[in-house]
Amino acid sequence: MKPVVQLDRTGCGIASAAAIAGISYGRAKAAAAALGISIDDDRLWSDTAYVRQLLGQLGRRVDSVPRPFRSWDTLPGCALLAIKWHRQGTRAAWHWVVYVREDGRRYVLDSKRALKSHVRRDFGRMRPKWYLAVMPRGSR
């Protein structure tokens, strides 16, 4: 899986969906807009519904209920992770990243534009709160 860089301040969920679907940020943003998902809506980082809906539109299934993060070793092969979890007023907020385990390697795709590398392996620095499992392609 390849990283996709977010081009908007609130675009981490769109970029994560694009990486999972294997498409560009622009295509994922257009698909989101067609679903009525606006880049200006802060629910992109404070609600799971938009990202789940977008991934469904892009042909990928994701869990409907977040699971608490226990350890890196217990994550499925692909998962949306909520990191940098905090309160913003009365709402929870976080940064979406994608955890990937494939071919004996594991890494996190982080879409934050300012990063030198969008493929992260500094697991001790990230503090996931919970995750949504992403089903393998073709699973029902």
Rank of each mutant, 00 (worst) to 15 (best):
T74P: 00
D110W: 07
I83W: 13
Q57T: 03
Q57L: 06
E102A: 15
I83H: 06
L54T: 12
P76F: 03
W85M: 04
Y131H: 09
R67G: 00
W130A: 11
W96S: 06
L115Y: 08
P128E: 03
W94V: 00
M126K: 10
Y99V: 04
C78R: 06
K84R: 12
L132H: 02
Q88T: 02
L80A: 05
R127T: 00
D110Q: 07
V100L: 05
G59L: 03
Q53M: 15
L54V: 07
A92S: 13
A82N: 09
R60T: 14
R120L: 07
L81F: 08
A93T: 11
P128D: 01
Y99R: 09
R91P: 12
Y107R: 04
R91W: 08
T90W: 02
S64T: 00
W130N: 08
K112S: 13
V65I: 15
W130M: 10
P128R: 02
R87W: 00
P76V: 04
L54C: 13
G124R: 13
T90G: 07
R106F: 08
L81A: 01
L115W: 06
W130C: 12
L55I: 07
S111A: 09
R60F: 06
I83K: 03
R125G: 02
R105D: 13
R70I: 14
R91G: 11
S117I: 07
S117W: 11
D103A: 08
Y107A: 01
G124A: 13
D110A: 00
Y107D: 03
R120E: 04
K129L: 14
A114K: 09
P66N: 02
V65C: 06
F123R: 08
G56A: 02
R101V: 01
A92D: 15
S64E: 15
L58H: 10
C78L: 04
A92F: 15
W85S: 03
R113P: 12
L75S: 02
I83E: 12
A93N: 15
P68F: 12
G124S: 13
Y107P: 12
R52H: 10
R67M: 06
Q88M: 11
L81C: 02
Q88Y: 09
D122Q: 15
A82L: 08
R120S: 04
V119P: 13
G59T: 10
S111E: 14
G124F: 09
G124T: 10
Q57S: 01
R113H: 10
G59D: 04
G77E: 14
D122N: 14
R91I: 11
R87K: 00
T74Q: 10
A79H: 04
A79L: 09
G56T: 02
R106D: 10
L75N: 04
R67P: 01
A82D: 01
R60L: 04
Y107W: 14
L132Y: 06
A79W: 06
H86K: 12
E102F: 05
R106W: 04
W96M: 08
R101P: 12
S117E: 07
R61M: 11
L54D: 11
L109N: 14
S64D: 12
R91D: 11
V65A: 14
P128M: 09
R87V: 03
V119W: 03
R120Y: 08
K129I: 01
A92K: 12
G59R: 07
